[in-house]
Structures are given as structure tokens and as C-alpha cells.
Amino acid sequence: PDLGLTQLFADPNLIENLKKNPKTSEMMKDPQLVAKLIGYKQNPQAIGQDLFTDPRLMTIMATLMGVDL
């Protein structure tokens, strides 16, 4: 199971919303991170391994779920 990750990354406004959010806007200036996020739309399971190697993803996930870290 993808634990709902498919829906989190399926939002067509995902990148724009993250660019507008004060907690994630600075991160979204990294083209490699943006490319990763776009890739998760097609393969949400890929985030599982990346969560352990890129701490920014935890902040992004929390933001998408509405959790304040």
C-alpha cells in the first residue's frame, strides 16, 4: 500500500502550492528536489527510500498533510 501518498502527490498544483508555502518555498528553488517531487506523481513508492536520505521530504510531507512540525 502507498499509505495515501498517491493522493498527496497527485495534486496538479503540488509544486506551485509548495512554492507559495513559507515552510517549503526555499526548498522549491532546488531543481533536483522539484524533479523528485514530479517523479513521485508517477511512482509514489519511490519516496519511501528518499525519506531516509533527504530530510526536506519529511517537511514537505508534513506540509502536504497539514501537520505543523
Rank of each mutant, 00 (worst) to 15 (best):
P1K: 03
P1V: 13
P1A: 11
D2S: 12
D2E: 15
L3Q: 11
G4R: 09
L5I: 13
L5Y: 12
L5W: 14
L5H: 08
L5C: 10
L5D: 06
T6C: 09
T6K: 11
Q7H: 14
Q7I: 14
Q7S: 11
L8H: 08
L8C: 05
L8P: 04
L8G: 03
F9V: 03
F9Y: 04
F9H: 02
F9L: 13
F9C: 04
A10I: 06
A10R: 10
D11T: 05
D11L: 04
P12N: 08
P12C: 03
P12T: 06
L14T: 09
L14I: 09
I15G: 01
I15V: 09
I15F: 08
E16L: 04
E16K: 07
N17I: 13
L18S: 00
L18I: 03
L18A: 02
K19H: 10
K19G: 07
K19R: 15
K20Y: 05
K20W: 07
K20M: 13
K20Q: 11
K20C: 06
N21P: 00
N21T: 02
P22E: 11
P22F: 05
P22R: 03
T24K: 00
S25R: 09
S25T: 06
S25H: 13
S25W: 05
S25M: 12
M27R: 00
M27H: 05
M28Q: 00
K29W: 04
K29R: 14
K29A: 09
K29N: 13
Q32F: 14
Q32V: 13
Q32P: 03
Q32E: 12
L33V: 05
L33F: 11
V34W: 02
A35S: 11
A35V: 03
K36V: 09
L37G: 00
L37T: 00
L37M: 06
I38E: 15
G39C: 08
G39Q: 12
G39F: 12
Y40G: 02
Y40L: 10
Y40M: 10
Y40W: 09
K41Y: 08
K41H: 11
Q42K: 13
Q42L: 12
N43I: 03
P44M: 04
P44C: 04
P44K: 02
Q45E: 15
Q45I: 11
A46N: 12
A46C: 08
I47C: 04
G48M: 15
G48A: 13
G48F: 15
Q49T: 13
D50G: 05
L51C: 07
L51S: 13
F52E: 11
F52L: 15
T53M: 11
T53I: 09
D54T: 01
P55Q: 06
P55G: 07
R56C: 05
M58H: 13
M58E: 10
T59D: 04
T59Y: 08
I60N: 00
M61P: 00
M61K: 04
M61Y: 15
A62C: 10
A62H: 05
T63F: 08
T63R: 02
T63S: 08
T63D: 03
T63K: 02
L64M: 09
G66L: 11
G66E: 12
D68E: 06
D68S: 04
D68T: 02
D68G: 04
L69P: 11
L69Q: 15
L69M: 15
